[in-house]
Design a protein around this nucleic acid. Structure first.
Length: 966
RNA sequence: GCCGGAGUGGCGGAAUUGGUAGACGCGCUGGAUUCAAAAUCCAGUAUUGGCAACGAUGUGUGGGUUCGAGUCCCACCUCCGGUACCA
């Protein structure tokens, strides 16, 4: 007779998880302070943007990994800071506000609440008392404060650090612009007397070329029809994504951050941090350091000079024309009347092109001759000046000398427009050498002839400097960060302008400068929605506030510091807290942030370091990039032309045939909940699915849905003549981003509801390496669930009615199972290989089950080993084992290698590298002994018979390989 | 285009330093249990030839280095992320 069902102590994740979550919260199990004798460890997740779609199964991948690591460190004697918060300013909330009128603060708060519930459901060990929200005035007070500090500083090149603007103005007053070696963008020089004679407006203009936060004219995507600036994301194929209106590049006066001042340090300090080589390479390439010459080309019949930067001064004799960015300041003055119409037409075309398009389009080069000529300083020839979209305004100097014989793009340009090409590098001695390689012998170049390229570069640099044509210079591809947005939902700039237009930063006491209430979030005629709040913009003393707001990257550039002391009203964080926690020891987040967020954060951190406010040069010591969890997008096909006034959808299997009839179809994504066999090739909509689909999209309620066997319309399924009448619309399944717009978001709550949070956590880890992208699918989750039940069952008798562990001492074999697991799991956590940890647990449980082991000593250690992975189940078992207090405050098991020693090793035996047999030998056998012993084996004799043995390779404890010939 | 990453059974993946390719899990096949089913347990499962013993082939494609290559080198293909205002 089976026991009554209620007596069976089956693993019940729902009850266990509810119970322990409440316990942890009540006992503040994860609360942490910096008053501790333990060594610190800071584990951080990239905080989420709380979108309306809610958290999907991709987000927790990194959070679970960091939580396991944080718990492991906590159990290993560290004082662990593990916080979470929200990157709460952003475009989607604002778009939502524009279309629905709901205040972004309200929708953001709702989204945050939902995210919090979803995260709470997964059993993370965050210290929620430290939560930050970037849109909270008590937080953005300090974002504004850091901005104001950037505004009040310049970069001293000699001291290699940021210094106060007041030091700069003192130096200017004493010695003019020559008085300091500062990183700046000012063209020209001025004396002390000239500086002192300047008006406030003039001084403000000069200082804008020195400040680390400064204002300049920058280009934006302007959409006249929508009356707004668009994000690159909102522009598709040169037109606005919404509405398809034309978009043009337009210059506007905007704030920027002088990140280029930090370029060298951002590059060099990569050496000191533990990031993947790929990530360092990406950052390094983004910074794009190159050495070369800055030089000036004279213009025929003009006083102006064109400044260029080149890494190949050795090829100047081959510079047969020049190309300026179409937006270059000199362009208007270089257009001759004959060329005016053509140039205007070209400029009109360029305006319609996004920067991305301009860089990506290589097959079709475009450009236009301005009519003027520059003078090549070495050949003294007049060379035509062109404009071309492949030269970008913010790249280098926005102008190049074109050497078609030694640069692919210049070559394509010259060929298309019939410009002169002069070979200057003879590569005949370097077969396989490309134009990108600095190799070859210089020809057709006067005094450089016969020199190797590197020597020619050096010779030319010396000449250029001696002749006063220019200087050696280091150039960076990195550009200053555009920091203004014409948006409502962002941090207001702590800047106001006086009657003369001179900018002034607010004092700390005046912060935070809160966002004003506006009735309408749409862009205003003057750009930013804030401009509408007249009372807020116009101050009683006649000053006006800045109406742009900061970008999303502002709040996220320093949030890792705020977690250290999140409620401090006097400072961004106390020095005591900052000096204890120092920097993030482990940072986990997506590769999509490889350059943007990580570069800006590093710059802000370095600035604060220069000011002596943080003790570390780098904010993130170790970085792990989690791969994206992708979703499967399921689509049906909608015929573009209506049939008898009705929309018609067809089965994917009919597509080719229907298209052959000359019909065309568009792909319509379907909410994946309605799809049967989701994610499989057989995925389809059945009649019930179609019914749900039309309830969801009422505009298609009378549409025709045609499968191979039947047709559905208005709730009725009609069999096709001679067919079964079963309605089945196969959907197209494609792997893509998991996103609200593709209707394929999978909510972790649904998975947790069915299997529990512990199972969800372990399954996400079991999916594969943390760094790899993979599509979500729940096929294997039952295996993990089974494992958790089997682990649970080890603590019970066969009928699962009585908790039953034995106090007997474990056997040698049982110890070996345990310590094999301890070794593997500890090593794998430390190398962030969480998927193989789960395998190791499974192996241990399988082995213990086979050995019928229920020894307390083994199960107690295994429970602690499991605690970081399945925190709820481990806590329950820990208490069932009779412990008080949380397992998460217990010690992580310690490895004893003595249990793992092997006496005999099964050696693989290879002949010429091919495995032929295996043979057991003592673990301590010497190579000479093995060489002899291996020849005794029958299989070896069979394979070596009649052949000459050249040598025997013995790798102790690994393998034996016999090399034979004949 | 440029920068970075990934490609291994039917599927997710393992192989940590150049040393037994396919651990672990899913799925599938067969068996036990059951009136039956679910659940559970046992066995098998890269492809291919063979009753078997055993053999051949095999880590995106093509070459190379090595006693030995999933791993290193060269060339290429496909997919994914970023490309400076999505976050």
């Amino acid at each position: 007779m089976y026991p009554n069902k209620t007596e069976i102590m089956e693993y019940q994740p729902r009850e266990i998880e509810r119970k322990w979550k409440a316990y942890w919260e009540e006992h503040k199990v994860y609360k942490v302070t910096h008053q501790s004798d333990k060594p610190k460890f800071y584990v951080l997740d990239m905080f989420p943007y709380p979108s309306g779609a809610g958290l999907h199964v991709g987000h927790p991948l990194g959070y679970v990994a960091s939580d396991i690591y944080a718990r492991y460190k906590r159990m290993s004697g560290f004082n662990v800071l593990h916080p979470m918060g929200y990157d709460a300013f952003g475009l989607p909330a604002e778009q939502y506000a524009i279309s629905t009128g709901v205040h972004p603060a309200k929708s953001t708060a709702e989204n945050i609440q939902r995210y919090r519930e979803q995260m709470d459901n997964l059993g993370f060990s965050y210290d929620w008392d430290r939560e930050v929200q970037t849109s909270d005035p008590s937080y953005y007070k300090w974002t504004q404060w850091i901005f104001a500090e950037l505004f009040a500083h310049y970069y001293d090149v000699d001291q290699n650090k940021a210094r106060s603007i007041s030091d700069l103005t003192v130096a200017f007053a004493q010695a003019g612009s020559a008085g300091v070696n500062a990183y700046h963008s000012y063209e020209g020089q001025f004396s002390a007397a000239e500086w002192n004679a300047m008006s406030a407006v003039q001084k403000d203009e000069v200082l804008m070329n020195y400040r680390l936060a400064y204002r300049k004219a920058s280009y934006v995507n302007w959409c006249e029809a929508l009356g707004t600036v668009l994000a690159n994301d909102e522009v598709k194929d040169g037109v606005s994504e919404r509405g398809g209106y034309p978009v043009e590049r337009r210059a506007m006066l905007q704030w920027s951050l002088r990140i280029t001042a930090y370029a060298e340090r951002l590059l060099n300090d990569l050496n000191d941090i533990d990031w993947s080589d790929a990530m360092k390479r990406m950052q390094g390439n983004w910074i794009g350091r190159s050495e070369g010459a800055q030089m000036f080309f004279d213009i025929a019949n003009s006083e102006a000079k064109i400044e260029i930067f080149t890494t190949r001064p050795d090829t100047i004799f081959g510079a047969t024309y020049m190309v300026l960015a179409p937006e270059h300041d000199l362009v208007p003055g270089l257009i001759t009347p004959e060329q005016a119409a053509q140039v205007e037409e070209y400029l009109h075309y360029v305006k319609s092109r996004t920067e991305r398009e301009r860089m990506a389009e290589v097959k079709e080069v475009t450009g236009c001759f301005l009519g003027s000529y520059a003078i090549n300083p070495f050949t003294n020839e007049n060379i035509p000046i062109w404009i071309g979209e492949y030269v970008l305004k913010d790249y280098g100097t926005g102008a190049i000398m074109a050497v078609p014989s030694d640069d692919d793009r210049d070559d394509a340009f010259a060929r298309k427009f019939g410009l002169k090409i002069v070979d200057v590098v003879d590569k005949s001695k370097y077969p396989g050498s490309t134009r990108h390689d600095k190799e070859g012998i210089i020809i057709n170049s006067g005094f450089l002839n016969g020199l190797e390229v590197p020597a020619a570069i050096e010779e030319m640099l010396q000449r250029i400097e001696k002749m006063g044509l220019g200087k050696r210079r280091v150039n960076y591809k990195l550009r200053d960060a555009l920091f203004s947005r014409q948006r409502y939902w962002g941090e207001p700039f702590p800047i106001q302008y006086d009657q003369e237009g001179v900018s002034h930063a607010l004092d700390t006491a005046q912060l935070p400068l809160e966002l004003p209430e506006v009735e309408d979030f749409k862009p205003s005629s003057v750009g930013s929605p804030l401009a509408r709040a007249a009372d807020w913009v116009n101050l009683p003393n006649g000053f006006k506030r800045e109406t742009d707001t900061m970008p999303g990257s502002a709040g996220s550039s320093w949030y890792f510091l705020r977690y250290m002391d999140p409620h401090n009203g006097q400072e961004f964080a106390s020095q005591e807290a900052v000096n204890y926690w120092r920097e993030v020891d482990l940072y986990i987040g997506g590769t999509e942030h490889a350059v943007g967020h990580l570069m800006y954060s590093r710059m802000w951190h370095k600035f604060l370091y220069d000011k002596g406010l943080v003790p570390s040069k780098e904010p993130f010591k170790k970085l792990i990039n989690q791969g994206m969890i992708q979703g499967v997008v399921e689509s049906v096909f909608l015929q573009k032309e209506k049939v008898n006034g009705q929309s018609r959808f067809i089965c994917h299997s009919m597509l080719a045939e229907e298209e052959a009839k000359g019909l065309s179809f568009s792909k319509i994504p379907v909410l994946v909940d309605y799809v049967t066999d989701y994610g499989l090739p057989s995925s389809h909509l059945d009649a019930a699915g179609v019914q749900k689909f039309i309830e969801w999209r009422p505009d298609y309620q009378n549409a025709i849905f045609e499968g191979p066997e039947a047709i559905f319309q208005n709730g009725t399924v009609t069999a096709k003549p001679g067919k079964s009448g079963v309605l089945q619309l196969v959907t197209l399944s494609e792997v893509g981003k998991m996103s609200k717009s593709m209707f394929n978001v999978i909510n972790p709550d649904d998975v947790v509801e069915q299997y529990g949070a512990d199972c969800f956590r372990m399954y996400e880890m079991f999916l594969g390496p943390i760094e790899q992208a993979k599509p979500w699918d729940t096929k294997g989750i039952s295996g993990v669930y089974n494992f958790l039940r089997r682990f649970w069952a080890l603590f019970y008798d066969k009928t699962l009615t009585n908790f039953k562990v034995s106090d007997e001492a474990p056997s040698k074999a049982e110890y070996k199972i345990l310590h094999t697991a301890i070794k593997k799991i500890k090593e794998d956590i430390e190398r962030y290989s969480f998927n193989t940890c789960v395998s190791a647990f499974m192996i241990a449980v399988n082995d213990l089950q086979k050995a019928n082991c229920n020894k307390r000593e083994v199960l107690d250690a295994l429970t602690r080993l499991m605690a970081p992975f399945a925190p709820h189940q481990a806590e329950e078992l820990w208490h069932l084992l009779g412990h008080d207090g949380s397992v998460h405050h217990a010690d992580f098991p310690v490895l004893n290698e003595a249990f793992l020693v092997e006496d005999v090793i099964e050696y693989p035996v290879q002949i010429n590298g091919k495995l032929r047999t295996t043979a057991p030998f003592p673990a301590d056998a010497q190579p000479q002994t093995l060489e002899k012993a291996v020849m005794e084996i029958e299989a070896v004799q069979k394979w070596t018979e009649g052949k000459e043995i050249k040598k025997i390779i013995v790798v102790p404890k690994r393998m034996i390989n016999i090399v034979v010939v004949g």
